[in-house]
């Protein structure tokens, strides 16, 4: 194992981590404030990726494509909240899970009708492709660095909004006592719609950034959604701090596991046994981690204060 490879994989882990954080932040905010379990959060990830790819082809500009994709996802999120999810806030979690499961089927099929079932390969503009030399001999894809930077910037922005602004104050107040906030004259429904839309936009941002790395296809949202569940279960549901910690842990463990479990097993087992057990173990690693965390701390690492 050479140090360059470890560094490269650690950066990949960080990149996956910030991506998971963008998803987890919206999901955990919506749960913390509206008490809503939203399985369709992965659909916003998919919608963001499709819209951005579509607008990029249409306008020829990656930046415009991304901005329009982001705005589009925000709009879709708000419409979904107004039409379907608003009535679900008072229902129990089971109803929420089932209704949002129905939404997933709808969105996956809608994307398949609009853009086909086949995977679409999103491309990068010239100024974002290529590698940069971090230091002598270590080259890393520029685009992945951009993702890490955007993700960390959004995390900082989110912290600022929630902790330092009037809007954030209302959000925190709404999380702890919605009746009281409404009684004080705040339009809590509007606040909910805004938070939901923002969460959807964050998921859309993650989706549109992932487009050029992975492929864009119907159902892409669910694969990451389940990893996001692991993230927020580990971090503690409803806590943004927990979402960040959980996302970075899961991103690192998953990426490093996939890269190094097999070679490490090969030092103890026979190569063929390592070839069989390695990938299986690597893909199960984050779930095992979740089980351990739950066994030790059932409320997650950073439970939300409420």
């Amino acid at each position: 194992m050479d140090i360059v490879l470890v560094l490269e994989q650690a950066l990949n882990g960080l990149q996956l981590g910030v991506m998971l954080f963008l998803m987890a932040a919206g999901l955990t905010l919506v749960f913390g404030i509206m008490n809503l379990v939203n399985l369709a959060h992965g659909s916003f990830y998919m919608v963001g990726a499709y819209l951005a790819t579509y607008f990029y082809q249409l306008t020829g500009s990656f930046t415009f494509g991304a901005l329009l994709g982001l705005a589009g996802t925000l709009a879709v999120g708000i419409v979904v909240e107004l039409v379907a999810l608003r009535t679900l806030y008072e229902r129990d979690h089971l109803d929420q899970v089932l209704a949002t499961f129905g939404l997933i089927l709808f969105f996956n099929e809608l994307m398949a009708i609009l853009w086909g079932r086949a995977a679409i390969y999103a491309t990068l503009p010239d100024y974002l492709s290529g590698h940069v030399e971090l230091f002598a001999g270590v080259r890393y894809p520029l685009y992945r660095l951009v993702i890490i930077a955007v993700g960390l910037a959004v995390a900082g922005l989110l912290w600022f909004v929630v902790a330092r602004t009037r809007l954030g104050m209302l959000i925190r107040a709404g999380a702890s006592n919605r009746t009281m906030v409404a009684a004080l004259g705040v339009n809590i429904r509007l606040l909910y719609t805004l938070v939901f839309g923002a969460g959807a936009a964050l998921a859309g941002l993650a989706g549109l950034m992932s487009g050029p790395i992975h492929v864009v296809q119907p159902g892409m949202g669910e694969l990451i959604l389940i990893e996001v569940f692991v993230v927020i279960v580990i971090g503690g549901i409803g806590s943004i701090r927990g979402a960040l910690a959980g996302a970075l842990i899961v991103g690192m463990v998953d990426t490093l596991g996939r890269a190094f479990v097999r070679p490490m097993l090969a030092t103890v087992l026979s190569p063929s046994a390592a070839d069989t057990a390695g990938p299986a173990l690597a893909s199960m690693l984050i779930y095992l981690l979740m089980a351990v965390v739950l066994a030790l701390r059932p409320q997650g690492l950073f439970p939300a204060r409420s």
């Binding site: 379907a84 009535t87 679900l88 109803d95 089932l98 209704a99 499961f101 129905g102 939404l103 997933i104 089927l105 709808f106 969105f107 996956n108 099929e109 809608l110 398949a112 009708i113």
Partner: peptide, 16 residues
């Protein structure tokens, strides 16, 4: 072939 487009909202309605 796009039956899920119909089934999905049906399921949402049945829950609601």
């Amino acid at each position: 072939q796009h039956w899920q487009l119909i089934l999905g909202p049906l399921l949402v309605l049945s829950v609601l």
